[in-house]
Design a protein around this nucleic acid. Structure first.
Lengths: 225, 225
DNA sequence: GTCAAACTTTTTGTATACAAGATTTCGATT
DNA sequence: AATCGAAATCTTGTATACAAAAAGTTTGAC
């Protein structure tokens, strides 16, 4: 029950239903979800653990959208984590996982050919999840998945850009080639560039950030109404 | 209050007062700490968020010590995170932070000269915290600190080994040199090797793991009393 | 003696009650 | 009219109450 509430709130937050710094009203939300404050507060704590809200003692739970520079920092870490996954995967990937990666690349090609953006998005997700698995380090994979999930709402912004899908596919192919060749340096570099927000991607991301409703409020949380 | 309880439980867990898989009894602990179950359960959730306990629905909170292979995986990630910090720091470190890193290396030298293990441990902590800061990426620094803290009880095992302190100091010097030279590749490689558990360090760690009371129970959590 | 089903006891999860801290309102003062 | 402070109101944090699920125990059949 507490987990259902967390799920619902998480959805509401990442779809921008709350402004940055907005306080989550325990009584109002308890009414809304037909639960008492107890499971609601549990949900708040879970959201705080994943960084979606900030808990200020005796003040309440405040939703926290990342500032642009924080988003860039998170993407930088994501790029490095995936680069590490790639480097390790080049040495450790099992034939089974490699085959599944190959399959997603083929599915991605099909999606591009069909102009199926949603399909591409889905297969792209699989591709990255498999890279994490391929690292052979479950802890690394779990950390990568955690950050990947956290960045999901912002990644959505990115992939709609024209031509991005095709470029992404090309990079997937290069990554696959590197993994097949056991080329750890190549896999690392290609994955880093694939995920990193730089060059044109930086500007695209900035543009969509400014349009989104997941923008941070420049005022510090503690001083807001 | 909930946070005090979390603090206390965290201490008890990392000092091995509970066996792996042991259930944390809400009523008993509520009595022990003179609090009600409400803040206690909050503490459980926080501990679950940092991976120290596992929450099984309708079953309770079970302490979770990492298996040896999980510990190795965590150290591998730590090594990679610090390597990234080092690479970025070589390009981004500010003169102020660099000066403070230099100071810790000098303090480490003094500690080695005096045979002051505790002093070395303290300065070593500062050194690594500063490396995180030097990365210029606050999110990366926060993630590195989180994992660093999680590994603290296991790192304690490591540094007592004879000769380790001197080798560690030598590596600190090399890292500092690389940072001063703006040598990102050097800083990255040196830091990775410094933190990585490999060669003799692997065997040392395994030996102390086996002796510690933070060992995992081979039986899966769900099947334990 | 073993197994299983029914019953009893614990234990968890949620709701509610209440006290202490934060916020707002409103009036008095400059 | 603006500002400060006290009273009133709201909100959070903790304790307690209660229902439902899990664990443990007893009883009965074979």
């Amino acid at each position: 029950m507490a987990d259902d509430v967390r799920e619902a709130l998480e959805q509401m937050i990442v779809t921008g239903e709350f402004a940055d710094g907005e306080r989550l009203d325990e009584n109002r939300l308890a009414d809304r979800f037909h639960v008492s404050r107890t499971p609601l507060r549990e949900a708040f704590q879970m959201l705080a653990a994943s960084g979606l809200v900030e808990l200020l003692p005796r003040r309440g739970a405040f939703v926290r959208h990342p500032a642009f520079h924080e988003m860039v920092e998170m993407f930088e870490v994501m790029a490095e984590l995936e680069a590490v996954c790639g480097r390790l995967a080049a040495r450790r990937v099992t034939p089974e996982v490699l085959a599944r990666i190959r399959a997603t690349v083929i599915a991605c090609e099909a999606a591009v050919a069909a102009g199926d953006t949603d399909g591409y998005y889905r297969e792209n997700e699989h591709f990255h999840q498999l890279i994490y698995t391929a690292s052979g380090n479950d802890f690394l994979a779990a950390e990568a998945r955690r950050l990947h999930k956290r960045l999901q709402p912002f990644r959505r912004m990115q992939l709609r850009v024209r031509g991005r899908m095709l470029q992404s596919l090309t990079e997937h192919r290069q990554i696959l080639t590197a993994l097949e060749a056991g080329d750890s340096t190549g896999a690392e570099a290609t994955l880093r560039d694939h995920v990193a927000v730089q060059g044109a991607k930086f500007n695209d991301l900035m543009a969509s950030y400014k349009q989104s409703n997941l923008r941070a409020n420049p005022q510090p949380v503690a001083l807001r109404g």
